[in-house]
């Protein structure tokens, strides 16, 4: 039996591009036939998977990783540029009313919002996360492995569905010992498909508003940016936001309540 063809010649056979001599050899050689079969399998695997679009994460994800790890010793710290960029985005938060969020300001707001968001499951996932400071507002995580909120309820709002005015849970502003405030939502607002729910605080003229982030379940604890006066933005609003990447309010509110001072 002549010597085995080179690997590349066997790959060529799998691609339908081999020489007749090699094909004859492979017919009579189980070792080489297994090799060709392996190449055919690899090709079938690639073809069978179909073309898949790989989607790179936006730049803010790397920034958020750096921010989060900057709390650890001896790890990649947030560069000064990263921090100042996030801080620079802060002023756009208060001014962004419905429809005004276009261009760079809106993108910055979204980046700032995303950068300091922490996934709720991170509590269970990383016990070490307790007290980690995220983002430029000095926002800290609530609790550690056992999420629990310590503080004083300073305002409450019964929530109602806008469609039929039916009770839909409650919203509370809890002030923690360090003075920071958290909006705690407990609602039975139904989740939505092909869209998501987002929580907003809106002023009484329904012009100024701030997003506190998406609502991914019946219970949410959403940080209110430091220095933000809830009394001026007392309307708690839950909206249905299409998955279109537009950071402004969709105008499609489903649940609302008005915060009143806790007696």
């Amino acid at each position: 039996m002549p010597r085995h063809p080179e690997e590349e010649a066997l790959a060529a056979l799998a691609l339908g591009d081999g020489t007749p001599d090699d094909a004859v050899h492979v017919d009579g050689c189980s070792t080489c036939r297994a090799e060709v079969d392996a190449y055919v399998d690899a090709m079938a695997r690639a073809v069978g998977a179909g073309p898949v679009t790989l989607v790179a994460p936006p730049a803010r994800v790397w920034e958020a990783i750096q921010d989060e790890l900057s709390e650890d010793q001896g790890s990649p710290g947030a560069s000064p540029q990263t921090v100042s960029a996030t801080v620079g985005a802060a002023p756009t938060l208060e001014g962004s009313g419905s429809g005004s969020g276009s261009g760079a300001g809106a993108a910055d707001e979204l980046a700032a919002r995303r950068a300091r968001r922490m996934p709720r499951w991170a509590f269970a996932a990383t016990a070490a996360a307790a007290g980690v400071v995220v983002g430029a507002f000095g926002v800290s995580l609530l609790g550690g492995a056992e999420p629990g909120l310590q503080g004083t309820v300073v305002a409450t709002a019964p929530l109602a569905a806008l469609a039929d005015d039916a009770p839909a849970g409650t919203a509370e502003v809890v002030q923690r010992e360090d003075g920071t405030e958290v909006l705690v939502i407990d609602t039975d607002t139904a989740s939505v498909t092909d869209a998501y729910l987002e929580v907003w605080l809106i002023d009484t003229s329904v012009e100024g508003m701030i997003s506190l982030g998406p609502l991914t379940g019946g219970h949410a604890e959403l940080e209110i940016p430091a220095g933000f006066d809830v009394a001026s933005f007392p309307i708690v609003d839950i909206s249905v936001e299409p998955l279109d990447g537009v950071p402004t309010h969709s105008g499609d509110s489903v649940t609302r309540g008005v915060l009143g001072a806790q007696a």
Partner: peptide
């Protein structure tokens, strides 16, 4: 969900490094 995917990506690299 784009936001959840970003969170997972972030958490993955943070977990990997730690």
């Amino acid at each position: 969900n784009a936001a959840d995917a970003e969170d997972v990506t972030q958490a993955t690299f943070v977990s990997a490094w730690r």
